[in-house]
Design a protein around this nucleic acid. Sequence first.
DNA 1: CCAGGGGTGAAAATACCTTTCATGGGTGAG
DNA 2: CTCACCCATGAAAGGTATTTTCACCCCTGG
Lengths: 275, 275
Amino acid sequence: MTRSMQRVAEAVAADPAGCAALTVTGLAERTGTSEATVVRTARVLGYPGYRDLRLALAGLAAQQQSGGAPAVTADIAVDDPLAEVVAKLAQEEQQCLADTAAGLDTSQLDAAVAALATARRIDVYGIGASNLVGQDLVQKLLRIGLIAHAPGDPHLAVTNAVQLRAGDVAIAITHSGRTDDVIEPLRAAFDRGATTVAITGRPDAEVTQYADHVLTTSTARESELRPAAMSSRTSQLLVVDCLFIGVAQRTYESAAPALSDSYQALAHRHSPRHS
Amino acid sequence: MTRSMQRVAEAVAADPAGCAALTVTGLAERTGTSEATVVRTARVLGYPGYRDLRLALAGLAAQQQSGGAPAVTADIAVDDPLAEVVAKLAQEEQQCLADTAAGLDTSQLDAAVAALATARRIDVYGIGASNLVGQDLVQKLLRIGLIAHAPGDPHLAVTNAVQLRAGDVAIAITHSGRTDDVIEPLRAAFDRGATTVAITGRPDAEVTQYADHVLTTSTARESELRPAAMSSRTSQLLVVDCLFIGVAQRTYESAAPALSDSYQALAHRHSPRHS
DNA sequence: CCAGGGGTGAAAATACCTTTCATGGGTGAG
DNA sequence: CTCACCCATGAAAGGTATTTTCACCCCTGG
């Protein structure tokens, strides 16, 4: 991507609707470049030519006009009425899911799933909100007959980790990628030959040094009232769900009966239907 | 509108997306007419020319693809490739969020928020995956200086519940609305005069008998590989987030400094930035 | 300071869209 | 029944948007 191509790309990103109304020549003028550059940019962006980029742009414009605020949702303010809070939150989380899905490396995911499906034992490390995500994963894995733990205590995590060896899997969940309490156990597992997976919003952070496979969660901007934990949690849960379903697919023969068994086991914990 | 113009108009109406991909010549051929007729049709439809009709068509196509396909996402199959699993999952969870936001009763939410903001003590009851949601809420409420607990053990929950009285709040989270282990503590709290809230997918289920305020989560269809727990969890988390933000708004004076305090407290638990 | 490579835009070439115009079929009056 | 007129229609010309080509020049590294 060269400098002038970036200018074009920026202009397009900044105002898709406006650019959709422009011809090559118009867009070239607006960005202070030439028609050739505009066409080249369209190519780089994955379209056969400007014509198609323009069509895509028109689509995008229509979409976000109908969805309205979606992509550009304003931050949640202190004096927003609750109805607006609900709408904005739902909107932001939806965006977060879309971003995560788009940014997830399927080959990494595939590798992680393969390791999980045949693991002797699975450890999931996470602190705070990330620990809840880990527990969610563990609950699901247990239901399909795998052996998994999500120690909430950092000391327990490390003592667990040193029991792992080749054939086991350790998963670290940390948004920042710099949570020592999570990195330490992952490193211990890594050093002992276990397959390690990192679920983080920062694929370049320290935690990935000890991870065989890195799954990237989306890093949505946070606002004062909406701590980062919210969007990172949403993102992490999606990744975790993907892992689970991937494993369930791979081990379908054993997973399916295990799942229905666990349903039945829970049945009598519910009161009979009233109405 | 002449006969051959009608043919063109019909073709466009029948398959906007397909026609958007066609040039004048292509559309003329497909409809067995001439380019001139296509252009004339575009004029009649209110566009300056075919080019503009085509752009509008692209927009329309994108719009109904985004609004349309979502609702009819196919179930995740055992042999879906991972990339497709990711896409479908993200899609379904997005849909789930949208449904929940649309179905949430703001007045009930507002009442629940009001109760929480002034509560002496808050208890959140949930079992299994719902307990994790409860813990998520508790973690957040603690961060803004409220006193909250999410006992994971049903016995603990009941013994906690009998301590509550007027001015306290109890929240029950159960998708089915029929989980005895959750209903029991809520009932105990209800009987002792605490304000009770139910977060459930079944607003007519037993749990709501003991709830002053009912928050409804969406009940997405589940598939074999995708247990109900997934979508109910997504839905519950959105409701819980809304509660939290609502409370944070109401108690902004005290919530804001409490939030920043908790950030600072965590800062030294992270390793310094490397790169 | 020079040589090489690549980014860049002017201009030619092409594809697409628009307009014009001749044709033919249909319709109503004679 | 026939004729004349009108208008729908498509072929082809004309014009505009897009694509390609190519030479220039800037920037980088030696």
